[in-house]
Every structure is written in structure tokens, then in C-alpha cells.
Design a protein around this nucleic acid. Sequence first.
DNA 1: TTGTAAGCGTTATCAC
DNA 2: GTGATAACGCTTACAA
Lengths: 329, 329
Amino acid sequence: MKKKSSVPTMKDVAAEAGVALGTVSKVFNNIPVGENYRIRVEEAAKKLGYQVNSYARGMRTNKTNTIAIIMPILSHPYFSKLTECICRELDENGYSGYIAITDRNEQAETRCIRMVSQHKADGIIALTYKPDLENIGNIPFISIDRTFSGSVRCVSSDNYSGGQIAASKLIELGCRKLLFCRSGSEVPGETDKRKAGFENCCQANNIPYNSMFTDKTEHEIRDVIYSMIDSGEFDYDGIFCSTDKLLFEIRCALNSRGIRVPEDVQMIGFDGITDFWTEKPICSTIVQPVEQIARVAVHAVLNYDSEESPSLICLPVRYQAGPTTKDGI
Amino acid sequence: MKKKSSVPTMKDVAAEAGVALGTVSKVFNNIPVGENYRIRVEEAAKKLGYQVNSYARGMRTNKTNTIAIIMPILSHPYFSKLTECICRELDENGYSGYIAITDRNEQAETRCIRMVSQHKADGIIALTYKPDLENIGNIPFISIDRTFSGSVRCVSSDNYSGGQIAASKLIELGCRKLLFCRSGSEVPGETDKRKAGFENCCQANNIPYNSMFTDKTEHEIRDVIYSMIDSGEFDYDGIFCSTDKLLFEIRCALNSRGIRVPEDVQMIGFDGITDFWTEKPICSTIVQPVEQIARVAVHAVLNYDSEESPSLICLPVRYQAGPTTKDGI
DNA sequence: TTGTAAGCGTTATCAC
DNA sequence: GTGATAACGCTTACAA
């Protein structure tokens, strides 16, 4: 027949233990306190099933031990893996994560950022396309894979090197007429760097190349390939695609027209996704260091102030041979 | 030269608008207030960039507009899709979601539940294996796909019907010696129902059947199949597998021994995962209604008290023909 | 070392 | 309809 059947508070613990309120607080904040007091408090807390109310604590300290994660989508192996790694890393640092899915929608991105900043997260890790970054206040914000114009800090793969590596690998494997493909579903910035690195390497090696851009979705792109082939414009022996998924579509289109991969055309993708079923790489690819990106992003957001704040952290990518190049499996 | 360069509070807005603190609160809670007052407040708020501090609000109201999501893993199409759907549904209801990944680890499950309940979420949606459900207090808890002994409410696919449908389909397609396969990586309860439904249908139709269980991981299971075949024990023309992934492994093993699917053996899986690359079903399967599960789970957790609280909500599954049965593509 | 009391930003209760 | 004022549960000087 206490007061209410509500959840216990520090006051209840203090009463149960016969100590002052402040003492209980100290125990839960690891501030030195008499050993006998500490024990009394801990027993009382356990007996009552007390847990600190982190909302009250957050209000007082302006610290919530929560980081917001903003992702465009989750039903894609790269994004889900990345999210999983971020969660694990946060957990290991005693943080938990909010999650918001934007469906690649700008308005949703802005709305999510508002929402989480209102929820007083201690920071934001976001993979976004074109958010409105005004009015965030001074909440630590780390962008993944997307560089913005302002002073927004970013953790990303080394896209430029990835492009270089892809080109040099194709050349090393004997290709002499190269093509770069990207589809329009990605944000300009990053794929441009992949392209730039690719072209840089081609030029340095005096290899002729071409670049292809289409604003079709990856799915519709097959028609573009078909018309290239049918009109005789297709004359390449090496292709670098901006994503593994795009590579898959193009490869299907080529196969439909009797062009063999890797015998006639060798292909390298970007992302490093392994097939869910076989757990093997589906193509030769430039692998993004997902775990490392997650780790560095979490570290960056948790130590936002104490860092010398580099505006861009590029993580090294690596080439992985697969069934779409002649060095592959 | 105000007080601090800190974030604006209701008090600041009240001062800026020249009204009382309580009036500002009313405006932000849609409580009727003089039209001219409302406008003054809204303008002041916009000017200052004010956002309500939901931690302070949460402390006062004991409502945080936050639901915790607990998942074993995210790098699996079913779990990531489910999580995505839950997030979308929460968002549409004005809630945001905490996320915790347990890595299928019991201790992590318990720890996560503690953590989120400490973070004062308004409820929990969890897909767990064997959590310690003590001391959660009275926080609304919805389990997905896992039925527990206690009064834990659960939203799940109709696993029993799924098993029946699979068996009846195989029989309809001409199979006369059936096999049920499950691997040990899943929790007992649910796959048992799939098995029970399957066996029930076999018995009703007087079709001989067998059931196979192995505590090997899905990956190691191929060896089990090999030894069955090599010792002559394998004599079936229809197999129902407890997951699509398991089906894939077994199918690979059969193929390696020259047994053709679906010509020699027809197979039906469970989950309804579509291949990321082709976006097509990889096998004939019993499809789980992912979106619906998410929607119902969110609805159940948000209306926890107002419901008549059924302890188990089973959602209908459906058969989808794929390349592993003779009616398939 | 321990206890006391003043807030943190909101909401809710009342007089006005 | 409006505006003081008392909580909410906790941290943190500061006083004992």
C-alpha cells in the first residue's frame, strides 16, 4: 500500500535505504560514497527494481546517450549491413541508436533530421541525398558517403582511388577500350569521384575510354544497353560500373545479346556486396570497408568536439576478384 | 547578448512574444488560445528557431513517442525488410524508433530490453530468441514470430497453415514421398508449427512423410544431405524446408549429386525472400506477409491498453510458385 | 563523506 | 482565455 503502483524513483530508493536522495544519485553515477551506504543503496535499488530515468537525467545533463541513424532504405545489403555495424559499434560504446528511414525522399530527410534533433540525440549519423541542413543547431552531424558543400563532416570510401584501382585492374587484365557506367539513381558527388579516378587512370595509361550516364533506374538500363549494341556503338572490352547492382543489370543485358562476361567483356563493380544465398561475391568489385566506415563514423560523432575535425575521412577500398574478370573464380 | 548561446526554451519564446509561459505551452499542444496570441507565439518561435524539448516533455507526461525495436540481426533480407516496414509504420504514426541488434545472443537480448526500458520507450517490438522477460515492468511488449509461455503478446505468420499449404501443394503437384527439413538455427516454437501443419496435411492425405532435423548451421547441412544420398536413405520427391535459405543449401547439395529440382524433387521453402539481384523469387515458397506483420505489430504496441489483448495474432501466408516446383516459372 | 536545495524545460492546475 | 505556480526525476553545487 505504497503511494502508487508506479515505477520506483530515486526518492523511493533513498527512503528504502534510509539515506538521502543525493547519496543515491552518487551511487548511480559512480561518485565515491561510503561503502556501507553504497551497499544499502544497491540492495534497495535491486529490491525495488529501480532503473534510472534517462529522460530526467538527460534533461538535467543535456546528454542522452543516444545517436540518431538516418538511412535512405534498409532493404539493400549495403545499407542494412552498414546500419547493423553502426548499431553494434554504438552499443559497444554504451550508446543506443534512433533509426529513421527516409525512403530516399528529401522532405523525409529533413523531417527526420528535425525529429531526431528534437528528440535531443547526442548526434546524428546520416546517409542522405539532399537534406535541408539548416536549423540543426550545433548537434554533431556525420555524413556517410555524401560530401556536402558546407562544413559538414563526412566519412566515406576513397571513391577516387576506387575508380583508379578499377581502371588499372582492367588494363592489367588486358582491356584496351574502357567504359564507365553510372545510373541516375545516385547522388552526383560520390559517383563523380569514382568516374574521375577511373578517367585519371585511363589517361595516365593512354587507354581510350568512354563514360555513360543514364538517369534511368538500374532496372530500365537494359534497354539503353540493347540500343547501344544494336546500333553498333558498343565496342568495349572492359566496363567499370558505379555499383554492383548496376553491373548486374548490364551484364544481363550483354548476355542477352550473346556477349560473354568475362571472355568478351570484363567488368568491375563497386560496393562489394556478397550474395545472400551463396555468400560469395557476385562480381569483381571494389569493396567498401563497411565495418570500418561504421566504426570511424561512430567514433567521429562521439568525439566530435575533441577532434581536430577533418572535414572528410576517406577509408581505403580494395579490389576483390570475382566471376566478371579473367582473374576471377 | 542574451543569457547564453544555448538552445531557446519556452521561456525565451514567451519573453519574445510577450506572453506567459503557459500560453506558449498551449500553442504547442494545440490547446485553444486567442488567435492573435497564437500568431505572436508562432512567429516568436520561428524567429528563435524553437523546438520543444521532448525530453522535458517526456519527463512530464511519461510519454516519449518512441518505440524500441529489437532484432537479432539486420543483414538478412527478412529482418531488414521487417525493420524497414516497422520504421515506416512508426513514422506514419508520429513515432520514432530505437533500434537494438542482439546478434542472436540471449544476454544481449536481455541487456537491450533493459536498456530500452531504461530509455523509457513507450513500448517494445521484439524478435527475440530467449530473452529474460523479467523486470520489464508494464511496458507494452509485442513479440514478433516468437510465442512465449507467459502472457507475452505475439504477432506472427500463420506457421501452421503455411505447413499445411506447403504439403498440400506438393501433393497436388504429384509428390508421394515427402520430407520436412529444418535446421537448428531457429527457435523451436515456430518451426515446430510449420512441421505440425505439414504433417497434419500429409496424414490427412495418407501420404508417407519423414522429418529431418539437424542442429548444424544451414551452411554445414550439405554434408548431412550428402551422407543421406550416399547411404541410399534419400528417397523423396518433395521437400518442405523451414526457410528459403535452408532450401537453397539443400538444393545445392542435391544438384551436386545429380538430383534435379524440380524434375526429380520438388521443393517449397518458407519466408518469401526475393533475390536482391533479380528481384525474383528464388524458390517456390510460403510468403510471410512482412508489411502486414509490421503494421499489425505497430498497431498492437501503440494500442496496447485499449485492445482486448489477444495473445497471438496470426497473419495469413500465401503460396508463391517459383523455380523449385513444376508449377513454377 | 553526507545531506540539502536549486534548478533543467515542460505540462497541468487553478485562480483571475 | 490567460498567466502564475507546483510538480516531474534527476544532477550538482554548496553547506553541514
